[in-house]
Design a protein around this nucleic acid. Structure first.
Lengths: 348, 348
DNA sequence: TTGTAAGCGTTATCAA
DNA sequence: TTGATAACGCTTACAA
């Protein structure tokens, strides 16, 4: 493997000069710079990653910790986006995947009283990030969740994506649940819908709560009285959507806002069993814009989570914290990214 | 950060002894070993990744190069599987994602005469793997494809996942297209279907070709004459499935084997327009078992690509090559992983 | 069984 | 503007 020393010899300069040139210093003649760069180019020299890591204080490395890579529909796109943005900002990226879903299928939704399992298992991931000399860590949650998992004495900047840190100790980038939800209800009302039933996720989940807020805000704005009888809660899974839809339909509801696409699919199941045609006899609106929403029949109108934007924002925030000491002290309230409505055929 | 030196001082031994103990050497008293390990435990000492990497010849690092992380439905699961298996085998993992789809939307299917773009852009990824001092590289293709992208003088072992290397220069792990396809047709025939139409992918694609072989094998085995009139080709996308299905149905075909779930969804679209009920008037069988196949109505019978198995096999192969010089010279024919049929409601 | 010392390739410091 | 040199933390001969 070719080294700085060899490059230096070839160019008749010292290793330090080569290093300086490679690192964007400007204290050398244009001529030497060009000479060296040419040789670097020709030889295809690549600095040794490990030697750099050992010597450098600032390592230009962002560590991405994911709870779950493949079982979480949102994670791959966020990760890809972070990686792309990091690369174009001159940062290397290191991915640690905890495979939470595989390991603790029950634990990771956090409602079985074993949330501690999550903390126990994030600890090693954060240590690994230190060992890898990351300048910053982006923690990508599999679900929206409030997290309290960073070691106490952690001195690397951390940003949370999708989930958020407890008590806003760290910055985070999440969905703008409330406004996105409000936008959906505004739209439905604009189409003439008044009695809008809701199938929420788990009732104590913050997505559920915030989206309920948006729902209420829209209702109020449009002078429609809130009716708690047409609010049902599921568990984000398809089957729970079907059950909830049954109850709502029994109450005469003909317009249902489902807090995710999976439960919307469940609502479709219910409609089908009752011989109600979605998009005609009944209107269903989803949330997430997962791939399935285009394969349901009729296609599902829904609101897309802008995963790429979330990734980019995470990346921007962490780089700002890395490169600007002052920035670390700026406010930690979550940054909220609006979802974007996609109109399809499930709404009258 | 705590170092071997400090551990050594604390234990009243030399750094080399600490290092030896940590690396599983056995030339020391049980007593010293325990003393040291205890301190290591207590202090939470972690060896510096970079210092190790610089000294070691064998770095215990596998580099995963992906063409596409989030746009390829197969990649995340394969990557997660590789990572999990690598970790449990004592290997660190380093992910380089090329984001091919984003960068060269047209190029990456390889049929626009710009396959060279792919090579140009894999080169840096392979160089990066060298810079990272990987002991082995697993290249995960976004689509099944024959690849010719490893630099000529590459001396790190490489294994291809999902795609395969040109002329079998490197080992690869792919789907057992032929046998999986044969199994599907056997099943359809066992259900009494005789005139089985096919919607293939692109005609020159090796998946398409191999699956056609399996189709023919099954037909022959079951004494059914091959009829090339009921073979149509699409481009793997939904719309092409609809078009192809139209032609087949016009020819009186009532049983269609689609070479992926997306085109099967297209066949559903066609059936719906013709008021044919899938699973009753017409039978449709898919391939892949993507998430959507459970959300189509009726649910789609299909054959699942065992992504986790592919990942594990890739990992096993690369570790064998890394740890066993001899193994590198063993045969390079692709390892084929059978798909597994999932019965749902789309077949009479 | 344990310790000493050299060296991996880079960057940072300081001197020329 | 350039170069000499030390240092990062670890592993590994080799010496004790």
């Amino acid at each position: 493997m070719i080294t700085v020393k060899e490059i230096a010899k070839m160019c008749d300069v010292s290793p330090s000069t080569v290093s300086n040139i490679l690192n964007g210093k400007t204290n050398m003649t244009e001529e030497t710079r060009n000479r060296v760069l040419k040789v670097v180019q020709e030889t295809g020299y690549k600095p040794n990653y490990y030697a750099q890591g050992m010597r450098r204080t600032n390592n230009k490395t962002i560590c991405i910790i994911t709870e779950e890579l493949c079982q979480s529909f949102s994670t791959p796109a966020i990760v890809e986006s972070i990686m792309a943005h990091a690369e174009s900002s001159g940062y290397r990226t290191f991915l640690i995947n905890m495979s939470m879903y595989e390991k603790w299928k029950k634990a990771y939704n956090g409602e079985l009283g074993n949330e501690h399992l999550l903390e126990e298992n994030t600890a090693p991931a954060f240590l690994e990030a230190e060992a890898v000399r990351a300048d910053g860590v982006i923690y990508v949650a599999a679900h929206g969740r409030i997290l309290d998992c960073v070691p106490n004495d952690y001195d690397i900047p951390v940003v949370f994506g999708y989930g958020m840190s407890k008590d806003n100790i760290y910055k985070s980038v999440v969905i703008d649940d409330s406004n996105s939800s409000e936008e959906i209800i505004d739209y439905l009302i604009s189409r003439g819908h008044k009695k809008i039933g809701v199938i929420g996720g788990k009732p104590d989940n913050f997505h559920t709560m915030w989206r309920m807020e948006g729902y209420k805000d829209s209702l109020k704005k449009n002078n429609i009285k809130f009716d708690k009888n047409i609010i049902e809660y599921g568990d984000w899974e398809r089957a729970s959507g079907e059950k909830a839809a049954e109850k709502l339909i029994a109450k005469g509801v003909k317009t249902i806002f489902c807090m995710n696409d999976l439960m919307a699919a469940g609502a479709y199941d219910c409609a089908r069993k009752k011989d109600l045609i979605v998009g005609k006899d009944i209107s269903i609106f989803g949330f997430d814009n997962r791939e399935i929403s285009e394969y349901l029949y009729p296609t599902l109108s829904t609101s897309e989570i802008m995963l790429e934007k979330i990734g980019i924002k995470c990346c921007e925030l962490i780089i700002e914290e890395i490169e600007n000491e002052d920035f670390r002290n700026t406010k930690k309230e979550p940054y909220r990214i609006m979802c974007e409505i996609t109109h399809r055929d499930s709404v009258v």
